[in-house]
């Protein structure tokens, strides 16, 4: 269990006045920064947004693909955008940004989720696995191998999400029949239409009894 952060003391909590809040926040942040920080930061504060940014960010720790990260992010940053834009783990894709396509599927504590609809700060203490963390070195995961063998993709853009979802689908015990696979893989859209091959790939891994 993580520590509960204190509420941001600089938030005046005025309704429907985001701009007033913003200006206030920028001023108060700058003032507090001047009061609290050594000259180095003050110098960086020639653009006041730099200081505002420091105060608007929050610390968050998580483990991604087995590696521990201590990060500082704005609360509004989604897990997906954190992975892609800040950590350069660009294997996870943005297809809709609204939980409607599955391209951003990652595992959080072993469960598949849409990383576009969760905030990075909500992942405190969680273990994240992305497509980059699935293979063991040069040895591909059996589902990755099966996707290549059965051509479970064309353009490849939905593929990281499909594979993360497929691994979870097998682990959950939802790969018992082609019909069940089709239903439980329906949260991952493939516009190239590789569904038949995706089902074949998952079926083979499931029937092969591989540890996934």
């Amino acid at each position: 269990m993580s520590q509960a952060p204190n509420e941001n003391p600089s938030c005046p909590g005025k309704k429907d006045k985001h701009e007033a809040r913003r200006d206030f926040l920028k001023q108060s942040s700058a003032l507090m920064a001047l009061a609290l920080t050594p000259p180095l930061v003050v110098k960086a504060g020639e653009h006041d947004e730099t200081i505002a940014g420091l105060f608007e960010k929050m610390p968050v720790s998580m483990e991604i693909n087995g590696k521990a990260y201590q990060l500082s992010v704005e609360p509004r940053v989604t897990l997906l955008d954190l992975l892609r834009e800040q950590l350069h783990l660009t294997g996870t894709k943005k297809g809709c940004d609204h939980g409607q396509c599955g391209a951003c599927t990652v595992h959080v504590n072993g469960q598949r989720i849409n990383s576009c609809l969760t905030l990075a700060v909500m992942q405190e203490g969680k273990k994240i696995t992305t497509i980059e963390g699935l293979a063991q070195g040069d040895t591909l995961h059996p589902v990755q191998e099966a996707f290549i063998k059965h051509d479970g993709f064309q353009c490849g853009y939905c593929t990281p999400g499909q594979i993360m979802s497929a691994v979870a689908c097998i682990r959950e015990g939802h790969a018992g029949s082609p019909e069940e696979i089709r239903e439980f893989m329906s949260g991952n859209i493939c516009r190239c239409g590789a569904y038949d091959n995706i089902v074949a790939a998952i079926t083979e891994v499931k029937q092969g009894g591989h540890t996934v």
Binding site: S2, P5, E7, N8, G13, K15
Partner: peptide
């Protein structure tokens, strides 16, 4: 931009929302 808090108790969560008219609970999100 918004602030984010993670109260440790149910009461603290309710207090946080009650105090701030534009605050919202987030669960799954």
């Amino acid at each position: 931009q918004f602030s984010y808090v993670r109260p440790a108790s149910q009461q603290a969560a309710i207090d946080a929302i009650t105090r701030d008219s534009s605050a919202r609970f987030i669960a799954g999100g």
